[in-house]
Design a protein around this nucleic acid. Structure first.
Lengths: 216, 216
DNA sequence: GTTGTTGGCTAACAACGTTAGCCAACGAGG
DNA sequence: CCTCGTTGGCTAACGTTGTTAGCCAACAAC
């Protein structure tokens, strides 16, 4: 979040209705009340078949867990054999990368929406609540983003900047933003992994987190 | 950290010099300046051979990464074949669990030492610094503790309570403790995974984290 | 009508965790 | 001294994983 790269050039206007790629379409951009430092990148274009495959992979992951996300099983739900997948994707890492992208797009949109919603009140609290809500609604998807060192090469340029930007918009300071993001991430990871001691009232833990970043 | 179970009974006195199990021995216990809620459990006893195996596994993990921690490779560095490992351990999960234990013991000792060191100054800051230091000094070991839902069954009873207790001792409030722990964990995980944008001055991020939990 | 591309297929490989079954060494008891 | 049970090695093998090689039908383009 340092080195939040300033927008270099305005995005090119959309040229006609784009194909449905399974990724969130560009939402209407409201007049922004807060300083903006990252523009929403343009989602990558995918062939229809690849979109199908990633969609199936997502369903597989969310419904049956990461253990069921194998190339053979993925082929099975698509009615083809595993090696045929390699006609469309270079390997399993590409499937995972696409799923990580999906999560970043969706979470980014949700978080920006929170910051856009101009309520003057506790922005940090609402941001944390939404972060938690998304992660808990898609635990397997979120976990996938948390594991590996995030092969950045495959990721859409600027996606990370943009999806993390709501934390900057909520705190107004890049390092506080990184700290808040880290705290939210850690809390989600621990909650998803059931690492908090049984009996904990996690709502209160999250409240304590929000308090730390709002008080003073 | 809620449900931090109060110490039920004093630990039994040590009966003679214990065998070296590869786990940290019980340290001398100083007079505690802060309220204590969890006693240091007694490390499990391991056969000498198992201790060798876990030691080799740790070296393998730390030196060559998690991808090299396979049963065949582990046997290789021990001069035996993979199936022979099953004469000593029920499976790979047991190796990983033992390594997670090791990390919890070591980190717990280090963190307690920080809180014990009676400096009246910024306890939270020093605690975070030590947490970060340990994790960065043993990235692969730490990552191992961060991945899976932590098969709690195999873990020494009370280990988690005790290893997390320094956060309670530093904050004085269980939910603030959980929040602080989550924040530290998240920051470490993101730093280890190289998820912060390149160019970030991570010292400042950690400073922001400490500030959030000290100011107010 | 030929030709090139697209997208399926089977067969196979190496590496993984793990199980089954065999056997040498060795300590204890009679 | 002999026997017997245990300990801790071994090989062979199984099922599963990601992945590659090579074959071939359908189809669009020239």
């Amino acid at each position: 979040m340092t080195d939040l790269r300033l927008p270099a050039a305005p995005r090119p206007a959309d040229t006609g209705p784009p194909a449905d790629t399974g990724l969130p379409a560009d939402p209407p951009r409201p007049a922004v009340p807060v300083e903006r430092v990252a523009l929403r990148p343009t989602p990558p274009t995918r062939s229809p078949r690849v979109t199908e495959i990633i969609g199936a992979a997502r369903r597989l992951l969310e419904d049956e867990g990461v253990g069921s996300l194998t190339m053979r099983r993925l082929g099975e739900v698509l009615g083809i054999r595993a090696p045929s997948l390699y006609k469309h994707l270079p390997g399993k890492h590409a499937v995972e990368a696409a799923l990580v992208e999906t999560a970043l797009w969706e979470a980014g949109d949700a978080l920006h929406r929170v910051v856009d919603g101009a309520g003057p009140g506790d922005v940090v609290g609402r941001l944390l609540a939404e972060y938690r809500r998304y992660a808990l609604a898609h635990p397997n998807l979120y976990r996938l983003t948390a594991v590996d060192p995030l092969g950045r090469e495959g990721l859409t340029a600027g996606l990370e900047d943009w999806s993390g930007e709501p934390f900057y918009r909520a705190t107004g300071e890049p390092y506080a933003a990184q700290a808040l993001w880290a705290a939210a991430h850690g809390a989600v990871v621990l909650e998803l992994a059931n690492r908090f001691l049984p009996g904990s009232d996690l709502d209160r833990t999250w409240a304590a987190l929000a308090a730390a970043f709002t008080a003073h």
